[in-house]
């Protein structure tokens, strides 16, 4: 069952790379958050049932409900529907996603875990989710897509943490969840400001700051 969830995560990765519609990407992030939130149920960890349910509940609430909800609100407010121009085409993106999966498996085969885990695929899948997130941040121009990429990156890290260290003190993990939540919130507010100031949220056109501007060169 755990392997099933991990496989679902890999498929969602590829799906997120293949979609240029922002609303579809937000839905993918929500599903991904839900899948990761359910992971602790299948770990056969030695922690009390109420605490387990608590973790599952908080993770689902933040990663599958609150954050996607906020992103959807932001999308409506800045009114972007799709990624107009990606720096990398859709099919190339998916190929890169497959390559990232390969890289993740290679890295985790070189870094053997010093203890047994519930599934041998946790580390490679977590790494590939994070790599996919980083790739989306780099390859998309819309500010909202970059935030989505950041969330996917964080999802991968969270999966790594929760699947390997479920039995550890929770305070830190909750702090991390809170920080990600506030981080996305601050980014969202910044996007509102960008939208108001520039009347678009295309970050490839945010290029006012540079060391040598072309027009300066002609002045000198």
């Amino acid at each position: 069952m755990l392997d099933g969830i991990l496989m679902l995560l890999v498929l969602l990765n590829l799906f997120s790379l293949g979609s240029t519609r922002i609303s579809a990407s937000i839905r993918v992030v929500a599903y991904q958050g839900a899948a990761i939130g359910l992971v602790p149920l299948f770990l056969r960890g030695k922690i009390p049932g109420t605490m387990l349910l608590g973790i599952v509940f908080v993770t689902l609430l933040v990663k599958a409900v609150l954050l996607p909800g906020f992103l959807r609100y932001a999308q409506k407010r800045v009114n972007v529907r799709r990624e107009e121009k990606t720096f990398v085409g859709v099919s190339t993106s998916i190929l890169c996603g497959v390559a990232a999966l390969g890289v993740a498996f290679f890295i985790s085969s070189r870094l053997p875990l010093p203890f047994a885990t519930a599934s041998p695929f946790i580390v490679p899948v977590a790494l590939s989710v994070s790599l996919t997130g980083s790739f989306i941040i780099i390859s998309r121009a819309q500010a909202l897509s970059q935030v989505i990429g950041y969330l996917i990156l964080e999802n991968g890290i969270y999966l790594f943490g929760i699947a390997l260290f479920l039995e550890q003190p929770l305070l830190v993990e909750l702090g991390m969840l809170l920080d990600v939540f506030v981080g996305v919130f601050v980014m969202g507010i910044t996007i509102f400001h960008i939208n108001r100031e520039f009347e678009h949220t295309d970050t490839s056109r945010l290029s006012g700051l540079a060391d040598w501007l072309p027009e300066e060169r002609s002045l000198e």
């Binding site: 950041y150 990156l153 964080e154 981080g183 601050v186 910044t190 960008i194 945010l206 700051l209």
Partner: peptide, 19 residues
């Protein structure tokens, strides 16, 4: 606009770094 652009770059790059 210029400080907004700087803020966005700061937020995104540092958040990824800290991740």
């Amino acid at each position: 606009p210029r400080s907004l652009e700087a803020t966005w770059k700061y937020l995104l790059i540092c958040s990824v770094g800290i991740a």
